[in-house]
Design a protein around this nucleic acid. Structure first.
Lengths: 212, 212
DNA sequence: ATATACCTTAACCAATTAGTTAAACTGACT
DNA sequence: AGTCAGTTTAACTAATTGGTTAAGGTATAT
Protein backbone atom coordinates (compact mmCIF):
# COMPACT_ATOMS: atom_id res chain seq x y z
CA UNK A 1 0.00 0.00 0.00
CA UNK A 2 2.75 2.40 0.93
CA UNK A 3 5.65 2.76 -1.49
CA UNK A 4 7.30 5.33 -3.79
CA UNK A 5 10.89 6.06 -2.78
CA UNK A 6 10.14 6.01 0.94
CA UNK A 7 12.66 4.85 3.48
CA UNK A 8 11.64 2.15 5.94
CA UNK A 9 11.11 4.74 8.65
CA UNK A 10 9.02 6.95 6.46
CA UNK A 11 6.87 3.97 5.61
CA UNK A 12 6.41 3.09 9.26
CA UNK A 13 5.43 6.67 9.95
CA UNK A 14 2.97 6.86 7.09
CA UNK A 15 1.33 3.61 8.07
CA UNK A 16 1.11 4.62 11.70
CA UNK A 17 -0.25 8.02 10.77
CA UNK A 18 -2.81 6.53 8.45
CA UNK A 19 -4.04 4.29 11.22
CA UNK A 20 -4.13 7.03 13.83
CA UNK A 21 -5.81 9.56 11.56
CA UNK A 22 -8.38 7.01 10.47
CA UNK A 23 -9.26 6.10 14.01
CA UNK A 24 -9.24 9.57 15.50
CA UNK A 25 -9.50 12.08 12.68
CA UNK A 26 -7.16 15.00 12.22
CA UNK A 27 -7.92 16.78 15.48
CA UNK A 28 -8.20 13.60 17.53
CA UNK A 29 -4.88 12.19 16.38
CA UNK A 30 -1.84 12.61 18.63
CA UNK A 31 1.67 12.98 17.35
CA UNK A 32 2.97 11.01 20.33
CA UNK A 33 0.59 8.20 19.52
CA UNK A 34 1.70 8.16 15.90
CA UNK A 35 5.31 8.01 17.02
CA UNK A 36 4.49 5.13 19.35
CA UNK A 37 2.63 3.24 16.65
CA UNK A 38 5.58 3.72 14.31
CA UNK A 39 7.97 2.54 17.02
CA UNK A 40 9.94 5.78 17.01
CA UNK A 41 10.00 8.95 19.07
CA UNK A 42 8.37 12.30 18.67
CA UNK A 43 11.58 14.10 17.76
CA UNK A 44 12.19 11.80 14.83
CA UNK A 45 8.63 12.10 13.74
CA UNK A 46 9.00 15.85 13.52
CA UNK A 47 12.38 15.39 11.89
CA UNK A 48 10.60 13.73 8.97
CA UNK A 49 7.38 15.67 8.90
CA UNK A 50 7.56 19.17 10.25
CA UNK A 51 4.05 19.36 11.55
CA UNK A 52 0.90 17.40 12.07
CA UNK A 53 -0.76 19.21 9.19
CA UNK A 54 2.04 18.45 6.78
CA UNK A 55 1.95 14.80 7.77
CA UNK A 56 -1.77 14.73 7.36
CA UNK A 57 -1.53 16.26 3.93
CA UNK A 58 0.96 13.62 2.82
CA UNK A 59 -1.07 10.72 4.14
CA UNK A 60 -4.25 12.05 2.71
CA UNK A 61 -2.93 12.67 -0.75
CA UNK A 62 -1.24 9.30 -0.88
CA UNK A 63 -4.39 7.49 0.02
CA UNK A 64 -6.39 9.37 -2.50
CA UNK A 65 -3.93 8.82 -5.25
CA UNK A 66 -3.74 5.12 -4.51
CA UNK A 67 -7.46 4.61 -4.91
CA UNK A 68 -8.37 6.56 -8.03
CA UNK A 69 -6.19 4.66 -10.56
CA UNK A 70 -7.54 1.32 -9.43
CA UNK A 71 -11.09 2.48 -9.88
CA UNK A 72 -10.39 3.99 -13.26
CA UNK A 73 -8.59 0.94 -14.52
CA UNK A 74 -11.56 -1.31 -14.03
CA UNK A 75 -14.09 1.19 -15.26
CA UNK A 76 -12.34 1.79 -18.54
CA UNK A 77 -11.63 -1.83 -19.37
CA UNK A 78 -13.06 -3.09 -22.64
CA UNK A 79 -15.47 -5.67 -21.32
CA UNK A 80 -19.19 -6.23 -21.10
CA UNK A 81 -20.87 -3.74 -18.77
CA UNK A 82 -22.50 -6.31 -16.54
CA UNK A 83 -19.22 -8.17 -16.20
CA UNK A 84 -17.52 -4.89 -15.44
CA UNK A 85 -19.98 -4.17 -12.67
CA UNK A 86 -19.40 -7.61 -11.19
CA UNK A 87 -15.65 -7.20 -11.21
CA UNK A 88 -15.81 -3.66 -9.90
CA UNK A 89 -18.05 -4.52 -6.98
CA UNK A 90 -15.98 -7.49 -5.90
CA UNK A 91 -12.66 -5.69 -6.25
CA UNK A 92 -13.87 -2.57 -4.59
CA UNK A 93 -15.50 -4.24 -1.60
CA UNK A 94 -12.33 -6.25 -1.11
CA UNK A 95 -10.31 -3.07 -1.25
CA UNK A 96 -12.42 -1.31 1.33
CA UNK A 97 -12.57 -4.38 3.49
CA UNK A 98 -8.79 -4.52 3.65
CA UNK A 99 -8.66 -1.04 5.18
CA UNK A 100 -12.16 -0.23 6.31
CA UNK A 101 -11.23 2.99 8.13
CA UNK A 102 -10.05 4.72 5.01
CA UNK A 103 -13.36 5.76 3.45
CA UNK A 104 -14.51 7.13 6.78
CA UNK A 105 -11.25 9.00 7.11
CA UNK A 106 -11.54 10.54 3.68
CA UNK A 107 -15.20 11.37 4.05
CA UNK A 108 -14.88 12.89 7.48
CA UNK A 109 -11.93 15.11 6.64
CA UNK A 110 -13.38 16.21 3.35
CA UNK A 111 -16.58 17.00 5.09
CA UNK A 112 -14.85 19.33 7.55
CA UNK A 113 -12.55 20.76 4.89
CA UNK A 114 -13.97 20.37 1.38
CA UNK A 115 -11.33 22.56 -0.25
CA UNK A 116 -8.75 19.82 0.11
CA UNK A 117 -10.37 17.79 -2.60
CA UNK A 118 -10.55 20.07 -5.61
CA UNK A 119 -6.81 20.17 -6.25
CA UNK A 120 -6.53 16.43 -5.92
CA UNK A 121 -9.26 15.74 -8.40
CA UNK A 122 -7.73 18.14 -10.87
CA UNK A 123 -4.45 16.41 -10.19
CA UNK A 124 -5.90 12.96 -10.78
CA UNK A 125 -7.45 14.16 -14.00
CA UNK A 126 -10.80 12.50 -13.48
CA UNK A 127 -13.61 13.18 -15.86
CA UNK A 128 -16.66 11.00 -15.76
CA UNK A 129 -18.37 12.68 -18.67
CA UNK A 130 -15.59 11.80 -21.05
CA UNK A 131 -14.90 8.30 -19.75
CA UNK A 132 -15.12 5.21 -21.93
CA UNK A 133 -17.61 3.93 -19.40
CA UNK A 134 -20.06 6.66 -20.28
CA UNK A 135 -19.82 5.81 -23.95
CA UNK A 136 -20.39 2.16 -23.18
CA UNK A 137 -23.36 2.95 -21.00
CA UNK A 138 -24.97 5.30 -23.50
CA UNK A 139 -24.69 2.75 -26.29
CA UNK A 140 -26.42 0.12 -24.21
CA UNK A 141 -29.17 2.56 -23.35
CA UNK A 142 -29.58 3.54 -26.99
CA UNK A 143 -29.82 -0.10 -28.00
CA UNK A 144 -32.49 -0.63 -25.37
CA UNK A 145 -30.56 -3.25 -23.46
CA UNK A 146 -30.62 -1.22 -20.26
CA UNK A 147 -32.91 1.38 -18.85
CA UNK A 148 -31.98 5.04 -19.20
CA UNK A 149 -29.78 6.17 -16.33
CA UNK A 150 -27.15 8.86 -15.99
CA UNK A 151 -23.65 7.64 -15.50
CA UNK A 152 -23.29 9.79 -12.40
CA UNK A 153 -26.33 8.20 -10.82
CA UNK A 154 -25.16 4.72 -11.68
CA UNK A 155 -21.70 5.38 -10.28
CA UNK A 156 -22.94 6.89 -7.07
CA UNK A 157 -25.37 4.01 -6.64
CA UNK A 158 -22.65 1.43 -6.99
CA UNK A 159 -20.29 3.32 -4.72
CA UNK A 160 -23.00 3.79 -2.12
CA UNK A 161 -23.80 0.09 -2.08
CA UNK A 162 -20.14 -0.84 -1.75
CA UNK A 163 -18.91 1.74 0.70
CA UNK A 164 -21.73 2.57 3.04
CA UNK A 165 -22.30 -0.82 4.67
CA UNK A 166 -18.64 -1.00 5.60
CA UNK A 167 -18.25 2.59 6.69
CA UNK A 168 -21.39 2.31 8.77
CA UNK A 169 -20.36 -0.99 10.26
CA UNK A 170 -21.31 -0.10 13.83
CA UNK A 171 -24.77 0.89 12.71
CA UNK A 172 -25.48 -1.99 10.39
CA UNK A 173 -23.94 -4.56 12.68
CA UNK A 174 -25.79 -3.39 15.75
CA UNK A 175 -29.12 -2.40 14.30
CA UNK A 176 -29.46 -5.16 11.73
CA UNK A 177 -27.64 -8.03 13.39
CA UNK A 178 -27.83 -7.22 17.10
CA UNK A 179 -24.08 -6.91 17.27
CA UNK A 180 -23.35 -10.31 15.77
CA UNK A 181 -19.98 -9.80 14.13
CA UNK A 182 -20.07 -13.06 12.22
CA UNK A 183 -23.47 -12.38 10.73
CA UNK A 184 -22.24 -8.97 9.69
CA UNK A 185 -19.10 -10.33 8.03
CA UNK A 186 -21.19 -12.90 6.26
CA UNK A 187 -23.40 -10.17 4.89
CA UNK A 188 -20.41 -8.25 3.54
CA UNK A 189 -19.11 -11.45 1.98
CA UNK A 190 -22.43 -12.04 0.25
CA UNK A 191 -22.49 -8.49 -1.00
CA UNK A 192 -19.41 -9.05 -3.12
CA UNK A 193 -21.73 -10.93 -5.46
CA UNK A 194 -25.20 -9.72 -4.57
CA UNK A 195 -24.61 -6.01 -5.00
CA UNK A 196 -23.63 -6.48 -8.63
CA UNK A 197 -26.73 -8.57 -9.32
CA UNK A 198 -28.86 -6.01 -7.53
CA UNK A 199 -27.49 -3.25 -9.73
CA UNK A 200 -27.72 -5.28 -12.91
CA UNK A 201 -31.32 -6.16 -12.25
CA UNK A 202 -32.05 -2.55 -11.50
CA UNK A 203 -30.78 -1.31 -14.84
CA UNK A 204 -31.48 -4.26 -17.11
CA UNK A 205 -34.29 -3.54 -19.50
CA UNK A 206 -36.73 -6.41 -19.15
CA UNK A 207 -38.59 -5.56 -22.34
CA UNK A 208 -35.45 -5.97 -24.38
CA UNK A 209 -35.70 -9.66 -25.30
CA UNK A 210 -39.18 -9.20 -26.65
CA UNK A 211 -38.06 -6.27 -28.75
CA UNK A 212 -35.12 -7.93 -30.43
CA UNK B 1 -36.24 18.99 16.18
CA UNK B 2 -35.30 19.78 19.77
CA UNK B 3 -38.01 19.53 22.40
CA UNK B 4 -38.92 17.57 25.54
CA UNK B 5 -39.14 19.75 28.65
CA UNK B 6 -36.10 21.81 27.76
CA UNK B 7 -35.79 25.46 28.71
CA UNK B 8 -35.06 27.95 25.96
CA UNK B 9 -31.42 28.11 26.99
CA UNK B 10 -31.05 24.37 27.04
CA UNK B 11 -32.48 24.22 23.56
CA UNK B 12 -30.10 26.85 22.30
CA UNK B 13 -27.23 24.91 23.80
CA UNK B 14 -28.31 21.60 22.33
CA UNK B 15 -28.76 23.09 18.90
CA UNK B 16 -25.42 24.83 19.03
CA UNK B 17 -23.71 21.72 20.30
CA UNK B 18 -25.30 19.59 17.62
CA UNK B 19 -23.99 21.92 14.98
CA UNK B 20 -20.51 22.17 16.45
CA UNK B 21 -20.18 18.43 17.05
CA UNK B 22 -21.40 17.68 13.54
CA UNK B 23 -18.93 20.02 11.97
CA UNK B 24 -15.92 19.19 14.11
CA UNK B 25 -16.52 15.88 15.79
CA UNK B 26 -16.18 15.28 19.51
CA UNK B 27 -12.49 16.09 19.79
CA UNK B 28 -12.59 18.98 17.35
CA UNK B 29 -15.49 20.73 19.00
CA UNK B 30 -14.75 23.63 21.37
CA UNK B 31 -16.86 24.49 24.37
CA UNK B 32 -16.21 28.18 23.79
CA UNK B 33 -17.44 27.84 20.25
CA UNK B 34 -20.58 26.06 21.38
CA UNK B 35 -21.20 28.82 23.90
CA UNK B 36 -20.74 31.43 21.18
CA UNK B 37 -23.07 29.64 18.80
CA UNK B 38 -25.67 29.43 21.56
CA UNK B 39 -25.22 33.12 22.33
CA UNK B 40 -24.20 32.47 25.92
CA UNK B 41 -20.94 32.21 27.84
CA UNK B 42 -18.79 29.30 28.84
CA UNK B 43 -19.65 29.50 32.50
CA UNK B 44 -23.33 29.10 31.78
CA UNK B 45 -22.64 26.29 29.37
CA UNK B 46 -20.89 24.37 32.13
CA UNK B 47 -23.63 25.36 34.52
CA UNK B 48 -26.06 23.36 32.39
CA UNK B 49 -23.84 20.57 31.20
CA UNK B 50 -20.96 19.72 33.48
CA UNK B 51 -18.57 18.56 30.83
CA UNK B 52 -18.05 18.24 27.13
CA UNK B 53 -18.59 14.50 27.34
CA UNK B 54 -21.87 14.82 29.18
CA UNK B 55 -23.08 17.33 26.64
CA UNK B 56 -22.02 15.10 23.82
CA UNK B 57 -23.83 12.15 25.31
CA UNK B 58 -27.05 14.14 25.58
CA UNK B 59 -26.87 15.47 22.03
CA UNK B 60 -26.00 12.11 20.61
CA UNK B 61 -28.74 10.22 22.34
CA UNK B 62 -31.30 12.82 21.40
CA UNK B 63 -30.43 12.67 17.76
CA UNK B 64 -30.50 8.95 17.70
CA UNK B 65 -33.83 8.74 19.43
CA UNK B 66 -35.34 11.28 17.05
CA UNK B 67 -34.49 9.29 13.95
CA UNK B 68 -35.40 5.70 14.80
CA UNK B 69 -39.14 6.20 15.39
CA UNK B 70 -39.59 7.99 12.08
CA UNK B 71 -37.95 5.17 10.22
CA UNK B 72 -39.92 2.53 12.03
CA UNK B 73 -43.19 4.28 11.47
CA UNK B 74 -42.89 4.18 7.72
CA UNK B 75 -41.48 0.71 7.58
CA UNK B 76 -44.29 -0.83 9.57
CA UNK B 77 -47.15 0.91 7.80
CA UNK B 78 -49.72 -1.34 6.18
CA UNK B 79 -49.21 -0.41 2.55
CA UNK B 80 -47.90 -1.97 -0.62
CA UNK B 81 -44.15 -2.67 -0.44
CA UNK B 82 -43.26 -0.70 -3.55
CA UNK B 83 -45.27 2.26 -2.34
CA UNK B 84 -43.59 1.94 1.02
CA UNK B 85 -40.18 2.06 -0.59
CA UNK B 86 -41.15 5.16 -2.54
CA UNK B 87 -42.40 6.96 0.54
CA UNK B 88 -39.46 5.87 2.63
CA UNK B 89 -36.86 7.03 0.15
CA UNK B 90 -38.45 10.41 -0.34
CA UNK B 91 -39.04 11.02 3.34
CA UNK B 92 -35.63 9.82 4.34
CA UNK B 93 -33.67 11.79 1.78
CA UNK B 94 -35.61 14.88 2.78
CA UNK B 95 -34.81 14.18 6.41
CA UNK B 96 -31.09 13.83 5.78
CA UNK B 97 -31.08 16.79 3.45
CA UNK B 98 -32.50 19.00 6.16
CA UNK B 99 -29.53 18.24 8.43
CA UNK B 100 -26.88 16.70 6.25
CA UNK B 101 -24.15 16.71 8.89
CA UNK B 102 -26.02 14.38 11.21
CA UNK B 103 -25.36 11.03 9.54
CA UNK B 104 -21.68 11.88 9.28
CA UNK B 105 -21.68 12.86 12.91
CA UNK B 106 -23.31 9.64 14.02
CA UNK B 107 -21.18 7.47 11.79
CA UNK B 108 -17.92 9.09 12.73
CA UNK B 109 -18.48 8.97 16.45
CA UNK B 110 -19.79 5.44 16.39
CA UNK B 111 -16.83 4.44 14.36
CA UNK B 112 -14.40 5.78 16.95
CA UNK B 113 -16.48 4.50 19.85
CA UNK B 114 -18.78 1.64 18.84
CA UNK B 115 -19.84 0.83 22.40
CA UNK B 116 -22.03 3.89 22.48
CA UNK B 117 -24.55 2.30 20.17
CA UNK B 118 -25.49 -0.99 21.82
CA UNK B 119 -27.34 0.58 24.74
CA UNK B 120 -29.22 2.89 22.46
CA UNK B 121 -30.43 0.15 20.18
CA UNK B 122 -31.54 -1.92 23.10
CA UNK B 123 -33.26 1.20 24.36
CA UNK B 124 -35.00 1.85 21.06
CA UNK B 125 -36.16 -1.75 20.96
CA UNK B 126 -35.41 -2.33 17.31
CA UNK B 127 -35.70 -5.76 15.85
CA UNK B 128 -35.63 -6.20 12.11
CA UNK B 129 -36.21 -9.92 12.19
CA UNK B 130 -39.56 -9.53 13.91
CA UNK B 131 -40.73 -6.47 12.02
CA UNK B 132 -43.95 -6.35 9.99
CA UNK B 133 -41.78 -5.36 7.07
CA UNK B 134 -40.02 -8.69 7.10
CA UNK B 135 -43.32 -10.53 7.04
CA UNK B 136 -44.49 -8.43 4.14
CA UNK B 137 -41.27 -9.00 2.25
CA UNK B 138 -41.25 -12.74 2.79
CA UNK B 139 -44.81 -13.07 1.57
CA UNK B 140 -44.00 -11.26 -1.65
CA UNK B 141 -40.99 -13.46 -2.17
CA UNK B 142 -43.04 -16.58 -1.53
CA UNK B 143 -45.66 -15.47 -4.03
CA UNK B 144 -42.92 -14.88 -6.60
CA UNK B 145 -43.64 -11.21 -7.03
CA UNK B 146 -40.15 -10.21 -6.00
CA UNK B 147 -36.78 -11.88 -6.11
CA UNK B 148 -35.46 -13.54 -2.97
CA UNK B 149 -33.56 -11.06 -0.83
CA UNK B 150 -32.87 -10.87 2.87
CA UNK B 151 -34.53 -8.00 4.65
CA UNK B 152 -31.19 -6.91 6.08
CA UNK B 153 -29.69 -6.65 2.62
CA UNK B 154 -32.67 -4.76 1.28
CA UNK B 155 -32.60 -2.34 4.18
CA UNK B 156 -28.89 -1.67 3.97
CA UNK B 157 -29.20 -1.19 0.22
CA UNK B 158 -31.89 1.41 0.60
CA UNK B 159 -30.10 3.16 3.41
CA UNK B 160 -26.84 3.19 1.47
CA UNK B 161 -28.49 4.72 -1.56
CA UNK B 162 -30.17 7.40 0.54
CA UNK B 163 -27.44 8.31 2.96
CA UNK B 164 -24.14 7.90 1.19
CA UNK B 165 -24.52 10.45 -1.60
CA UNK B 166 -25.35 13.13 0.94
CA UNK B 167 -22.74 12.18 3.50
CA UNK B 168 -20.12 11.98 0.78
CA UNK B 169 -21.19 15.26 -0.75
CA UNK B 170 -17.66 16.64 -1.20
CA UNK B 171 -16.63 13.50 -3.04
CA UNK B 172 -19.65 13.12 -5.25
CA UNK B 173 -19.90 16.81 -5.98
CA UNK B 174 -16.26 17.22 -6.89
CA UNK B 175 -15.52 13.93 -8.59
CA UNK B 176 -18.79 13.52 -10.42
CA UNK B 177 -19.78 17.10 -11.08
CA UNK B 178 -16.51 19.01 -11.04
CA UNK B 179 -17.67 20.98 -8.04
CA UNK B 180 -20.90 22.18 -9.60
CA UNK B 181 -23.16 22.66 -6.58
CA UNK B 182 -26.32 23.06 -8.63
CA UNK B 183 -25.74 19.90 -10.61
CA UNK B 184 -25.15 18.09 -7.35
CA UNK B 185 -28.34 19.40 -5.76
CA UNK B 186 -30.26 18.46 -8.85
CA UNK B 187 -28.94 14.94 -8.60
CA UNK B 188 -30.08 14.65 -4.98
CA UNK B 189 -33.45 16.02 -5.98
CA UNK B 190 -33.81 13.40 -8.70
CA UNK B 191 -32.81 10.66 -6.31
CA UNK B 192 -35.89 11.24 -4.18
CA UNK B 193 -37.77 9.43 -6.96
CA UNK B 194 -35.10 7.50 -8.84
CA UNK B 195 -33.65 5.59 -5.92
CA UNK B 196 -36.98 3.98 -5.19
CA UNK B 197 -37.44 2.94 -8.82
CA UNK B 198 -33.89 1.63 -8.88
CA UNK B 199 -34.58 -0.53 -5.86
CA UNK B 200 -37.96 -1.67 -7.09
CA UNK B 201 -36.54 -2.72 -10.44
CA UNK B 202 -33.75 -4.52 -8.67
CA UNK B 203 -36.07 -6.69 -6.62
CA UNK B 204 -39.09 -7.00 -8.90
CA UNK B 205 -39.37 -10.45 -10.34
CA UNK B 206 -39.72 -10.01 -14.09
CA UNK B 207 -40.91 -13.56 -14.67
CA UNK B 208 -43.87 -13.00 -12.45
CA UNK B 209 -46.43 -11.75 -14.96
CA UNK B 210 -45.86 -14.72 -17.22
CA UNK B 211 -46.30 -17.08 -14.30
CA UNK B 212 -49.59 -15.72 -13.08
C1' DA C 1 39.14 9.12 10.88
C1' DT C 2 35.73 11.94 10.10
C1' DA C 3 31.78 13.58 8.03
C1' DT C 4 27.05 12.85 7.37
C1' DA C 5 22.48 11.10 7.78
C1' DC C 6 19.61 8.82 10.88
C1' DC C 7 18.05 8.17 15.51
C1' DT C 8 17.30 8.59 20.76
C1' DT C 9 16.53 10.87 25.28
C1' DA C 10 14.79 14.19 27.84
C1' DA C 11 13.82 18.47 29.02
C1' DC C 12 11.48 22.35 27.71
C1' DC C 13 8.28 26.27 25.72
C1' DA C 14 4.05 28.16 24.19
C1' DA C 15 -0.57 27.70 22.98
C1' DT C 16 -4.85 25.84 23.53
C1' DT C 17 -8.52 24.45 26.07
C1' DA C 18 -11.71 22.05 29.58
C1' DG C 19 -13.31 23.26 33.60
C1' DT C 20 -13.61 26.28 38.06
C1' DT C 21 -14.56 30.10 40.89
C1' DA C 22 -16.10 34.33 42.81
C1' DA C 23 -18.47 38.42 42.51
C1' DA C 24 -22.06 40.80 40.82
C1' DC C 25 -26.45 41.63 38.06
C1' DT C 26 -31.35 40.61 36.63
C1' DG C 27 -35.96 39.51 36.93
C1' DA C 28 -39.62 36.87 38.60
C1' DC C 29 -42.03 35.21 42.23
C1' DT C 30 -43.37 35.61 47.47
C1' DA D 1 -37.80 43.73 50.81
C1' DG D 2 -35.85 39.47 50.03
C1' DT D 3 -34.97 35.08 47.91
C1' DC D 4 -33.47 32.38 44.25
C1' DA D 5 -32.63 30.54 39.67
C1' DG D 6 -30.54 32.07 35.69
C1' DT D 7 -26.97 34.78 33.80
C1' DT D 8 -22.58 37.49 32.95
C1' DT D 9 -17.67 38.80 33.43
C1' DA D 10 -13.29 37.84 34.07
C1' DA D 11 -9.66 35.83 35.98
C1' DC D 12 -7.62 31.59 37.02
C1' DT D 13 -5.94 26.38 37.08
C1' DA D 14 -4.37 22.35 35.42
C1' DA D 15 -3.71 19.36 31.79
C1' DT D 16 -2.75 18.31 27.24
C1' DT D 17 -0.27 18.69 23.33
C1' DG D 18 2.29 20.48 19.10
C1' DG D 19 6.61 21.64 18.36
C1' DT D 20 11.67 22.74 19.60
C1' DT D 21 16.19 22.10 21.24
C1' DA D 22 20.47 20.29 22.74
C1' DA D 23 23.37 16.72 23.53
C1' DG D 24 24.79 12.62 22.30
C1' DG D 25 24.66 7.73 19.99
C1' DT D 26 25.35 4.69 15.78
C1' DA D 27 26.21 3.30 11.46
C1' DT D 28 27.78 3.70 6.71
C1' DA D 29 30.31 5.80 3.22
C1' DT D 30 34.20 8.34 1.55
Amino acid sequence: MVNENFTATEQKIIEAAQLEFSEKGLSGARMQSIADKAGINKALLHYYYRSKDKLFEVVFKMLFRSIIPRVEEILNKEIDLFEKIRIFVETYINLIQSSPQIPMFIMHELSSNPKRLSQMVALAGLNVEKSPLKKQLDELIASGKIRPIEIEQLMINILSLCIFPIVAKPISMTVLYNGDEKAYQQMIEMRKKSVAEFVINAIKNTDYEELT
